[in-house]
Simulated assay, not measured.
Amino acid sequence: MGAEILDSFPAGGPRGSWPAEQKAAELRKAGQPVEVVMDLESDRFLVVAGRR
Rank of each mutant, 00 (worst) to 15 (best):
M1E: 06
G2K: 14
G2Q: 11
G2W: 02
A3F: 04
I5H: 02
I5V: 14
I5G: 04
L6Y: 01
L6A: 00
L6D: 03
L6V: 00
L6E: 07
D7K: 14
D7Q: 11
S8D: 11
S8K: 05
F9P: 10
F9K: 11
F9L: 09
P10K: 11
A11I: 00
A11F: 09
G12F: 07
R15A: 14
R15L: 08
G16H: 15
S17K: 04
S17E: 08
W18Y: 14
W18H: 14
W18P: 02
P19V: 07
P19I: 06
A20T: 03
A20C: 08
A20I: 06
E21A: 09
E21C: 00
K23V: 01
A24P: 15
A24N: 13
A25I: 04
E26F: 01
L27S: 02
L27R: 05
R28E: 05
R28Y: 03
K29M: 11
K29A: 13
G31V: 12
G31M: 12
G31S: 09
G31Y: 08
Q32A: 10
Q32N: 06
V34W: 13
V34T: 04
V34C: 07
E35T: 14
V36D: 03
V37R: 03
M38S: 08
M38W: 15
D39Y: 00
D39T: 11
D39S: 14
L40A: 08
L40M: 09
E41G: 01
E41T: 07
S42E: 08
S42C: 04
S42T: 15
D43N: 14
R44Y: 09
R44C: 12
R44A: 12
F45L: 01
L46G: 01
L46R: 05
V47E: 04
V47M: 03
V48A: 03
A49E: 04
G50E: 10
G50N: 09
R52V: 09
